[in-house]
Design a protein around this nucleic acid. Structure first.
Lengths: 206, 206
DNA sequence: ATTATCTATAGATCTATAGATAATGC
DNA sequence: ATTATCTATAGATCTATAGATAATGC
């Protein structure tokens, strides 16, 4: 009886019935998306195989292709889903700190956005992957750029985003000490002071 | 006659004879190292295949394994060779700017160190790769940490290195505009001012 | 004779697909 | 009957190795 490993039961919170673990295309889609989101963040695009993802979702690997067409398309949906919410729900002047704290927090609850972590671990993948990553980066940088009134505000925004991603890179991906174990408050304070000077730097003219 | 594609002739600057393109184990080793250094920097560890590397070196692919044992071992030699020189030849207080300018410069001559670029593009590879990358990062961070006299100087050094790598990530790997096309002097000035505040920040006590 | 180089191929992955099986809705 | 799910496998890579070939040094 090879169906000993049925998908986890607690999922599929859409239908309303509680113990659902039967044929449910929508639910299976969501299970795959959640599993992919987790594994892409943990291992990056290339190292998270479709079999890993399907296995974590408790779902047959062929269904991933039935519902998403390809691994890249699945990645695209994961990236499109995440990030956007945090980006729109956060006022610009708080975006940097919120994103930084999200990166500094350990494996926080399922509510936290791991899109930036996915970006960091998927660098160097195929060009299409790079495109998907650039999209999210652009949105963040655009918001950060509005914080500076200098005429090179866009460049300053890029530099702020660069620091954010660099910190995530060293802390989360590389695990560099002492940064990896540093107190989030201390990191925020040090970075915040330096960045305030950068973003609120006096415009050249005025 | 399948030997139409002999290795490039201008190489092997060791023996002294100019037109050398015959059997030369040392020369072949060097050709492979150079080709690997270039391709790892351009595509990262995973995407640069052993066949690509051997092909660029104008050398049969089996020789890579004969002289280095494995692709990972070759990567280790590339990482060990690069970086160290720049790291030791540069006085600590100039290291950040030199490394930053090296990253901001386009495909500079063969003299420039591309180790940091290799790091950035190889993130997310296997764990052994991560180890090799961490080694280089540690050395840079150690030097940068000496610039700050604050009692959390090591953390400040990590944050400086994070920014350096983040800028390289956005500019070189992702190609984020306007950063990617920005004037190196402008970038250095903006980052330098903000970092001076961070690294020379007053110690908490004294 | 030694050994640098090349040919051919084993062996391990991984994505993706074709077609069989079986659970649901009418 | 419809369609969600599963089995089996094609097909494409990629690293690595065993053994053949051929250019050098004595």
């Amino acid at each position: 009886m090879p169906e000993a490993t049925r998908r986890a039961v607690e999922a599929a919170p859409c239908g309303g019935a509680t113990g659902e673990h039967r044929r449910d295309a929508q639910g299976t889609r969501r299970l795959l998306l959640d599993a992919a989101s987790h594994l892409f963040a943990e291992r990056g695009y290339e190292r998270a195989t479709v079999r890993d993802i399907a296995s974590r979702a408790g779902v047959n690997q062929a269904l991933l292709f039935r519902y998403f067409g390809s691994k890249k398309a699945l990645f695209g949906e994961v990236m499109a889903r995440g990030g956007q919410e945090q980006l729109r729900a956060t006022p610009p002047e708080r975006l940097f700190e919120v994103a930084l704290r999200g990166m500094l927090a350990e494996g926080a609850g399922p509510g936290t956005d791991r899109s930036l972590e996915v970006c960091l671990r998927s660098i160097g993948g195929s060009d299409e992957i790079g495109e998907a990553l650039r999209g999210l980066g652009d949105e963040y940088a655009d918001v950060l750029a509005t914080l500076s009134r200098a005429d090179d505000g866009a460049l300053r925004g890029d530099l702020a985003l660069s620091w954010l991603l660099g910190i995530g890179l060293m802390r989360v991906v590389v695990g560099k000490e002492p940064l990896a174990s540093a107190d989030p408050d201390a990191v925020c304070r040090l970075v915040g002071e330096a960045l305030t000077a950068l973003l609120e730097g006096l415009p050249k003219t005025e």
